[in-house]
């Protein structure tokens, strides 16, 4: 399958670092800046609601939210269809992902497709913080005979609606809302650029547990994050694997690092010879949108992908580390 297009959407409301100080109580946390490089986050809750309540009860947050995971996903799909020039009826399979569902049943993919009013196969392929590279790795291993002409993948998350802004300054600084939609096709015809998944490999890592979103409020515990040494070991191992696949790849590719660790990972990549202008963040101006973050970064570099300039999506931090290489065919 070829990757034919990517779109991403976020709510319009942005919270800068200085605005964040007015929303939280107590001292701001430096985790979002130091680990992830977040300097602004998009949120779907009204500021006055956060100021008044802190969003201590996410159920109340949902009542006043400007977007839901489903509405963001639908918007991303509409934009994807518009740029791809295909109709929703041509999509034979939709895969969904969310870490912040309003409903645990039906699946997010079914809710999104339900908004379009079409009958077609849909289910969720839930990959957590590495959702996009993981979905690419799964699809790259599928045999095309059993697949429809076109299929979509949508990762959509509204973690801002599950942040307790008064009690948890770390999460308040880190999380933002976004949806990403990817279109796959058996062939591109003349309507799109063909992006081939040239390499996809996931392996176990030495760290498994990263409880980010519980039913209730999100909670980010620094103790659950990879240490700088673990992150460095993971990235070094991935670079070694990539060099084995293609000796020139690391010197040419644009890198989308593990997004929860985007800032720390960029420093490690720099030390390994990857210049800063070849590292793209999906979290710096959106916040960490869980599985959608890799897709936010991918949308930024989509037009620049070429045979000479492939894109590497790296993932680690939840028990699996892996890389996917996208290259114009």
């Amino acid at each position: 399958m070829f990757l034919l297009g990517v779109t991403t959407v976020s709510p319009a409301a942005a919270v800068s670092d200085s605005e964040l100080k007015r929303l939280i109580r107590g001292e701001p946390s430096d985790i979002a800046k130091r680990v992830s490089g977040v300097s602004s986050r998009r949120i779907s809750l009204p500021f006055d609601y956060i100021t008044a309540t802190g969003n201590s009860d996410p159920l109340e947050g949902w009542k006043v939210a400007t977007s839901s995971p489903t509405s963001l996903g639908v918007q991303a799909v509409r934009e994807l269809l518009a740029i791809s020039g295909i109709s929703i009826e041509q999509v034979g399979l939709t895969l969904g992902d969310t870490g912040t569902p309003y409903q645990t049943c039906p699946s997010e993919a079914q809710r999104i497709m339900g908004e379009f009013g079409v009958k077609s196969a849909a289910f969720d392929l839930v990959g957590g913080i590495g959702a996009v590279p993981h979905a690419l790795a799964v699809v790259s291993r599928w045999s095309s005979e059993r697949l429809p002409e076109y299929m979509m993948y949508v990762s959509t998350n509204t973690p801002s609606q599950q942040v307790n802004y008064h009690e948890d300054p770390s999460s308040a600084g880190l999380f933002g809302d976004a949806a990403v939609a990817l279109l796959f096709g058996k062939s591109a015809g003349d309507k799109g650029r063909r992006i081939k998944i040239s390499y996809a490999k996931f392996s176990p890592e030495d760290r498994r547990r990263l409880p980010v979103v519980a039913q209730g409020s999100v909670r980010l515990n620094e103790d659950d994050l990879l240490s700088a040494e673990q992150l460095s070991n993971n990235i070094s191992a991935e670079l070694e694997s990539l060099r084995s696949f293609d000796s020139k790849l690391v010197g040419n590719a644009v890198f989308i690092a593990p997004q929860l660790y985007a800032a720390q990972a960029a420093e490690i990549l720099n030390r390994c010879g990857v210049a800063g202008d070849r590292i793209v963040s999906g979290v710096n101006d959106i916040g960490f949108s869980i599985g959608a973050s890799h897709g936010v970064a991918l949308a930024k570099v989509w037009e620049k992908i070429s045979k000479e300039r492939p894109v590497v999506l790296m993932h680690c931090g939840d028990g699996q580390r892996g890389s996917v290489v996208l290259m114009a065919s």
Binding site: G99, P106, L125, V126, R208, R209, V213, I290, Q320
Partner: peptide, 24 residues
Amino acid sequence: TVPGEAVRIAERLGINVEAYDVYT
């Protein structure tokens, strides 16, 4: 919801493998 149920079950079984939710 993050990580997924598959990751939690893998952890309980004490195995480091590809683990994800496929849901309907």
